[in-house]
């Protein structure tokens, strides 16, 4: 393009006219090869993660991609002589913000997934053309800009990056800082008001709940906890009714769905072993059967 040619000429002109101290005018070189490696590694990790945010079907996958990008950015800040910012990035973004997102995903529905059918005509093309166009435009412009030699922050960070930043925040930009704090308070208040749910009916008390239970439900007694009246109090062992059969009410639905419920008979061997260990006298017959144990007791006497 003529435009780019013109810019190249201006760059070369600047090159010839630039003062001698400018090293590699046109490029902004700083740092060593290690940073270069870091750049490439982080890029290769972060860009696919961002694309995952763009293309993932399940929302939680997208959130994961986002989290990767956030952490990556934190690392980059640390490498770019911005330690304070890097740490704050991890705390705020990778921590608080992503946590907020995930909470909301949980509230909205983790398995809510977008259908792939695009309802607005031409939206995908627009996104491709203009998103891609934006990237191409900006990259080409940035590439043609003449940069002064980067100074780095060594001179500024004489007492440390934090001090330098604090000098600015509480010095030159204290007013912005105070206003931002007001903003944060307002944001919190806003969130509270938005999330507040006004009760339409008074909260049912325990009495109301129990009255409701007696009236409606078939079960009048509290449900048995799992493992009651069995020789174990594990969740995956059903409780035993007085006649020795497992109570269906004590079964965990989730564990059934997972197929992880154990039968009562499976714990008998364990019970025998434990009993043998704890009984002081000779009780030769470890009771396989609780009925057998009671018969033994009657037979012995």
């Amino acid at each position: 393009m003529i435009a780019l040619q013109l810019l190249h000429e201006s760059v070369s002109l600047a090159t010839t006219q630039a003062p001698a101290e400018t090293v590699d005018a046109g490029t902004a070189k700083l740092g060593g090869g290690g940073e270069q490696v870091l750049f490439w590694v982080m890029s290769i990790i972060m860009v696919p993660a961002a694309l995952g945010l763009l293309f993932a079907r399940k929302a939680v996958h997208a959130a994961l991609g986002m989290a990767v990008v956030m952490i990556g950015l934190g690392i980059i800040y640390l490498a770019e002589q911005a330690p304070f910012l890097g740490v704050v990035q991890i705390f705020v973004y990778a921590g608080a913000v992503m946590m907020l997102f995930l909470f909301l995903l949980m509230l909205v529905g983790v398995d809510s997934s977008d259908s792939l059918v695009e309802t607005i005509k031409g939206q995908r093309w627009m996104a491709l053309v203009f998103g891609g166009g934006l990237a191409i435009l900006l990259i080409s412009v940035l590439g043609d800009v003449t940069y002064t030699a980067p100074k780095g922050l060594k001179d500024v960070d004489t007492s440390g990056n934090m001090t330098a930043m604090a000098n600015l925040i509480f010095g030159k930009y204290v007013w912005a800082f105070e206003v931002t704090s007001a903003l944060l308070i307002t944001a919190v208040l806003g969130a509270m008001i938005l999330a507040h749910r006004e009760r339409l009916v008074p909260k049912p008390t325990q009495r109301d709940l129990s009255i409701k239970r007696i009236r409606e439900g078939p079960v009048k007694a509290p449900l048995p906890a799992p493992g009651v009246f069995a020789r174990s109090n594990a969740v995956d062992i059903p409780a035993l009714l007085p006649d020795g059969s497992p109570s269906p009410l004590s079964l965990s639905r989730v564990l059934i769905a997972r197929g992880q419920m154990r039968a009562v008979g499976t714990v008998r061997e364990d019970v025998k072993v434990i009993e043998a260990e704890i009984t002081p006298g000779d009780r030769p017959k470890a009771d396989r059967n609780p009925d057998a144990a009671s018969e033994n007791a009657e037979g012995a006497s």
């Binding site: 627009m126 996104a127 998103g131 435009l137």
Partner: peptide, 22 residues
């Protein structure tokens, strides 16, 4: 749609400004 038009506007504007400047 609004977001798309915003993005389109930004890109076109940017392109125009750069084309004119250069």
């Amino acid at each position: 749609s609004y977001a798309a038009s915003m993005l389109a506007g930004v890109v076109i504007l940017l392109g125009g400004v750069l084309a004119v400047r250069i």
